[in-house]
């Protein structure tokens, strides 16, 4: 058990950094503008991240699993560590980074190291989703902006009551955003450990069963929650007041748009529903919550007439699609080599 936890530590670290950074995407404006207290945000975020991870986390993990099935714990540890190191290094270098892109790069590094070959179909699906997710988020934000504007112009809402309603909506959107963050991004944190998981299915009080994968996701969810409580406040304040200034209503639209996108790329139930009605479905892929948020902000900017949009940020996002997986793959490859040859561990 101790060895298992030791090997899981790299994934837990990745989870912690996800909680510290990505929770700010969901709650940044709400907390940064004092619409929601940090304590309330952290509690709601933690609960819903864990719920999202346990209930809806398996879909995106499945796609990652297709990209590379890492069957040994030392291998999974090294891949998660490589992703975590990439995130850390790129954050230090102030480069845009996404946990989703880092873990995919690290898995590709493992593919190359183990000689298993890259599943191009899965890779194409993942890369396409990365490009599509911020565009989709921008589209949702654009449409939602006009829907909200339509209602605000027709309903007489006193400013003070509007403030109260916006707080409630921000809390609800934050809870939904946290759920989708857990559902979509838990695959980044714990996905690589699934094939080598030692957890057995358990029954809780005879009421419901928790599979081994769900237990793994619950642990990952707790790591994300710890990240939220210990380190996200500072990032939230930065997101809320420095990077982009949104008013509380537009912040709600951005968070909702991004959450819908993350949900579309995470929910197996929604995918089944769309398929059963012969509608186009979305691949279940871990996408970047940060880039979805940026997409949402751009959508709002476009809805307001396209002025003051910093288009250079799009260049930075595109660079992230290439740079992050590349750096992560290189670190993963080197780390696997070291772990196998210096520490004599079986990594593939």
């Amino acid at each position: 058990m101790l060895a298992t936890l030791l090997f899981l530590s790299s994934g837990l670290f990745l989870g912690w950094s996800l909680g510290a950074n990505d929770a700010a995407n969901v709650w940044g404006t709400a907390v940064g503008t004092n619409m929601v207290k940090f304590k309330s945000a952290a509690i709601v975020c933690s609960i819903f991240v864990i719920l999202g991870a346990i209930i809806s986390g398996s879909g995106a993990s499945h796609t990652l699993g297709k990209l590379g099935t890492i069957s040994t714990l030392p291998g999974a540890f090294t891949v998660a560590l490589a992703a975590a190191l990439s995130v850390y290094m790129m954050t230090k270098a102030a480069l845009p980074v996404s946990t989703s892109q880092a873990i995919v790069g690290a898995i590709i590094g493992w593919n190359l190291f183990s000689g298993t070959g890259v599943n191009m179909q899965s890779l194409t699906k993942i890369l396409g989703s990365w490009v599509f997710s911020p565009i989709l988020s921008a589209g949702f934000a654009f449409v939602l902006y006009f829907v909200v504007k339509f209602f605000l112009r027709r309903i007489r809402f006193h400013l003070i009551r509007l403030d109260f309603t916006t707080r409630f909506l921000l809390l609800a959107a934050g809870a939904f955003g946290s759920y989708t963050l857990g559902a979509n991004n838990i695959a980044n944190v714990m996905g690589v450990f699934i094939p080598s998981s030692v957890f057995q299915d358990i029954s809780i009080g005879g009421l419901f069963n928790l599979s081994g994968v769900q237990q793994l996701f619950a642990i990952g969810g707790v790591a994300i929650a710890v990240g939220v409580f210990t380190y996200s406040k500072r990032v939230m304040m930065t997101v809320g007041s420095e990077i982009y200034r949104l008013n509380p209503i537009t912040a709600f639209i951005v968070v909702l748009s991004s959450s819908i996108v993350l949900f579309l790329f995470a929910s197996q139930g929604l995918k089944d529903l769309l398929v059963s009605h012969n509608l186009p479905s979305f691949p279940l892929v871990p996408v970047s919550s940060s880039q979805s948020i940026v997409g949402g902000v751009i959508g709002i900017g476009l809805a307001k007439g396209g002025k003051n949009i910093n288009f250079s940020i799009l260049g930075r996002i595109s660079m992230g699609w290439i740079m992050t997986p590349l750096i992560s793959a290189i670190i993963s490859f080197i780390s696997l080599f070291i772990v196998q040859n210096v520490f004599s561990q079986i990594v593939s």
């Binding site: 006193h158 003070i160 009551r161 403030d163 109260f164 707080r167 409630f168």
Partner: peptide
Amino acid sequence: MISIFKKAKGIEANIE
């Protein structure tokens, strides 16, 4: 949340 709602209504009344 309920207390904020009550206070919000109170402020609305005061402004009016």
